[in-house]
């Protein structure tokens, strides 16, 4: 088991997938991270040397991911509401924000658009 950004990963897990498990890292960012550290596409977590693990951890610490990113997104929504913008109001009301029609169902908006949105 290997710790990456204080999460424990089994050794068979691909580094690409392990990185993608963090909030804020998708396929693109993950591929760029691999390239930055000269890791090949099919590299497994168990193959990483200790220095490489430290380097990856250092890079991840500098990035805005996980709770920092969640806080930022929630902060953005709260700011919109506090300044009284239309988008802020729509968030608060749980209605579509970007001009979608509301004649019929707006299930995604009910689920997602909240001030304290679950991320």
């Amino acid at each position: 088991m290997v710790f990456l950004f204080s999460v424990n990963f089994p050794e068979r897990r691909m580094v690409k997938k392990a990185l993608q498990s963090f909030f804020g890292i998708g396929p693109n960012v993950s591929a760029r991270l691999l390239a930055k550290h000269h890791l090949h596409d099919t590299c497994r977590v168990g193959e990483l040397a200790n220095t490489q693990i430290l380097e990856i951890n250092a890079t991840l610490t500098e990035m805005k991911i996980e709770n920092d990113l969640r806080r930022q997104v929630l902060g953005n929504i709260a700011r919109l509401r506090d300044t009284g913008t239309y988008r802020g109001k729509r968030h608060a009301m749980g209605l579509p924000v970007r001009g979608q029609r509301t004649k019929n169902q707006t299930i995604t908006a009910w689920k997602l658009n909240k001030i304290d949105r679950k991320l």
Partner: peptide
């Protein structure tokens, strides 16, 4: 096909580099 390890080398000596040197 990028399925095995690779590492940058310095051009003259063609030896492997540490991350800082890279």
């Amino acid at each position: 096909i990028a399925h095995s390890a690779y590492a940058p080398m310095s051009i003259n000596s063609e030896r492997q580099l540490s991350p800082d040197q890279t």
